[in-house]
């Protein structure tokens, strides 16, 4: 158990023992060392399995809307999760006073695709030091710089620190460089129309409609998704290329002004579809057009909840 983990365990145990929260959402060990799984602790004696490291891929905020408003929830939050919670509070999915956040400045998440691609599937444990990842096999250990293994969306991360956690454990990290964060999408936007379209078709074609992206996203909490609607049927729900494209367009567009750039959708995708190319474009537009960044506080409504006479006008062409 790392130093951070023991500090967190102590903190969580206190919360649960003092009955300050009804449930604490965090991670626990799973069979695969690469995939710690979300856990819902209600008693402090369950915390033996507790784990917290850079392989904890899920955005735990995604579980918040599943609880009734009155439930008191505890959570370990990174920067992106904190922002997601903030925005869920804006959208009235939970009351801020019923959420207790233990903030941890985020070192970035290790992308298991990158890990497996580089080191094969035989590893038995993955540990981390400050800037390095240690991969253990049965007979040996390899070290690799953390930066090379981080998930793309973490490489772009601008706000790694929790913004409004009730308790923060660990040292704050420097803010990321916003221009760096935007280079990738900007480069994609600079391609010509046909190239962008070809890219999109190729990506969307791989989709198998497992909806893992939807399940992983903290903002996709509708009880009935628009794709599942019977009447009117908004779009095809079969595995047809056009239907896939429609799904990805609307899924991304429903995140406009709501995406916290956590990358959970992309990490969840079994087909490795680069979904952040879509949401980051929208985030970028929200930033430039409306100076809005999602989740920076728990009061500001997203741009589509408001309108202004002075909006940048591209209406009349």
């Amino acid at each position: 158990m790392t130093d951070l983990e023991s500090k967190l365990t102590a903190e969580i145990a206190n919360l649960l023992d003092d009955k300050k929260v009804d449930v604490f959402i965090a991670f626990k060990k799973a069979e695969s060392p690469l995939h710690p799984q979300p856990a819902f602790f209600t008693e402090s004696n369950q915390l033996g399995d507790f784990v917290y490291n850079s392989l904890c891929q899920n955005n735990l905020a995604a579980f918040i809307p599943r609880y009734p408003l009155s439930a008191r929830i505890g959570m370990v939050v990174r920067g992106c999760e904190n922002r997601a919670v903030n925005h869920l509070v804006v959208e009235k999915q939970h009351a801020r006073e019923n959420i207790f956040m233990i903030g941890v400045p985020c070192e970035g998440l290790v992308d298991w695709h990158k890990l497996v691609n580089r080191f094969g599937e035989e590893m038995i444990a993955v540990d981390e030091a400050k800037d390095e990842i240690m991969i253990s096999y049965r007979d040996r250990q390899i070290r690799a710089p953390r930066q090379e293994l981080l998930h793309d969306s973490c490489l772009r991360c601008v706000h790694p620190n929790p913004l409004s956690a009730d308790v923060t454990i660990g040292e704050l990290k420097p803010e990321g460089d916003p221009t760096l964060a935007r280079t990738e999408v900007a480069a994609f936007s600079a391609l010509d129309n046909a190239a962008r379209h070809a890219w999109f078709r190729k990506e969307a074609e791989r989709c198998i409609r497992c909806y893992a992206c939807r399940e992983a996203c903290p903002m996709c909490y509708c009880t009935e998704c628009f794709v599942d609607h019977g009447v009117p049927r908004w779009t095809e729900s079969t595995v047809s290329p056009a239907g896939m494209r429609a799904w990805h367009i609307v899924r991304a567009f429903h995140q406009a002004g709501r995406c916290v750039s956590c990358g959970a959708c992309e990490r969840a995708c079994p087909m490795d579809i680069k979904m952040t190319y879509l949401t980051e474009k929208l985030n970028e537009d929200m930033r430039t057009k409306y100076q809005f960044e999602c989740g920076m506080d728990d009061k500001t409504q997203p741009p589509f909840a408001a309108f202004n006479l002075d909006d940048k006008n591209r209406f009349e062409l």
């Binding site: 009235k92 999915q93 909490y221 509708c222 009880t223 009935e224 909840a305 309108f307």
Partner: peptide, 20 residues
Amino acid sequence: FTCVACGMCVEVCPYQAVSL
């Protein structure tokens, strides 16, 4: 049966006719 009470309708309504 499908409303998730996100409050978007409340925000955009020009007549303050919707509430949660």
